[in-house]
């Protein structure tokens, strides 16, 4: 566990989660850490694999509006979505700009996609006189004109904003998170237009192994996917470990959460360990030689290990989810 303990828990490769974390830090729920957000939104447990060549688009190819709003609901927020199809009408362009401005007026940034690079980022300021937004993503902190924003290149004009923060018990947060984690792992999550193009959850491993066996992995895409999943699973294991400490053991639910989380943490730590092996095979961004037979075969072994461990992990989380369905109290003295 040495590599895991050295990790910086304030940064992640999953930009959807870092954007949510960034937005949440402006609200009354700023006590939520990035580890909490990665776990409670399910992003630490995601796997979305391009079955042709492990394309770099895989990790962000999910219905952003649906997932991000469900994520925010998990954390106890009412949210707004703009996802008008491109090219947008002037009216929808105005309403989207207005939605972003209203969020900023309330003191929270808006979550957007492809501000400077095709990743999630935040719009945290506006300037009508210069007709531009102040925005930040992993690549850049700067400005983007209203016009550039409206001329979105991703097919929809996308923005998610936080409308209101609601009181939300840790029971609800965890149950809703488990619901997302399990349905994603089992490939049951609604995936919109991406459905047949990517292998979701546990089935992602089979797709990945298949590409490795065919020696068809794209070096950059493969290394990027490795980096994202290695980071995510390290967060998953850490999230579960923290549950075993944060839940106090005062009643049967608390004790069950601690017990199952500890069990699952061990499985996800094994997944993270396998992906650390993948990282040394395929250093990002150069990516090594994934089409080389010997390297690809080693990758297959590591992926199979990861898959076996994750299947066990998912089973445990599924049991915990079933159990949690029956309990709603915040404090239960008994």
């Amino acid at each position: 566990m040495t590599a895991a303990t050295e990790k910086d828990w304030t940064k992640t490769m999953t930009t959807a989660a870092s954007a949510i974390y960034g937005a949440v830090s402006y609200t009354d729920k700023k006590h939520l850490t990035l580890v909490d957000v990665m776990g409670l939104t399910g992003h630490a447990f995601r796997l979305n694999i391009d079955p042709k060549q492990i394309h770099a688009a895989g990790p962000t190819s999910f219905p952003g509006g649906y997932i991000l709003r469900r994520n925010l609901a998990n954390l106890g927020f009412i949210s707004n979505l703009a996802d008008a199809e491109m090219p947008v009408t002037p009216e929808l362009a105005e309403r989207t700009i207005a939605l972003v401005q209203q969020a900023i007026d309330r003191g929270t940034p808006a979550i957007a996609f492809d501000l400077f690079i095709p990743e999630f980022g935040l719009i945290y300021g506006y300037d009508d006189e210069r007709q531009l937004f102040h925005a930040k993503d992993v690549s850049h902190d700067g400005t983007i004109s209203y016009r550039q924003f409206v001329e979105s290149k991703i097919g929809v004009l996308f923005a998610v904003t936080i409308a209101e923060s609601l009181p939300h018990s840790k029971y609800e947060m965890l149950r809703m998170a488990l619901d997302m984690i399990v349905s994603h792992a089992r490939g049951e999550e609604w995936n919109h237009v991406f459905k047949d193009k990517f292998a979701m959850g546990l089935s992602g491993y089979g797709a990945w192994i298949d590409v490795m066996r065919k020696r068809e992995a794209d070096a950059f895409g493969n290394a990027y996917n490795v980096e994202v999943v290695a980071d995510a699973r390290a967060f998953a294991a850490e999230f579960l470990r923290r549950l075993t400490v944060q839940w106090n053991g005062a009643n049967i639910v608390e004790r069950m959460v601690r017990e199952r989380a500890a069990e699952a943490a061990a499985h996800y730590e094994a997944v993270a360990e396998a992906f650390r092996g993948m990282e040394s095979l395929f250093p990002f961004p150069q990516g090594g030689t994934p089409q080389d037979a010997e390297i690809a075969d080693r990758a297959v072994v590591l992926l199979a290990d990861a898959q076996a461990a994750e299947e066990k992990g998912v089973k445990v989380l599924e049991q915990l989810f079933d159990f949690m369905k029956a309990y709603y109290s915040e404090v239960w003295v008994h």
Binding site: T10, Y21, G22, A23, S25, Y26, Q101, I104, D105, G107, T108, P109, L122, Y124, G125, Y126, D127, D128, E129, H134, K136, D141
Partner: peptide, 16 residues
């Protein structure tokens, strides 16, 4: 917006 007297500019602290 300007005619309605809405704020012309608002910039929050940059995100973490």
């Amino acid at each position: 917006r300007s005619e309605l007297g809405l704020p012309p500019k608002r910039i929050l602290a940059p995100p973490p």
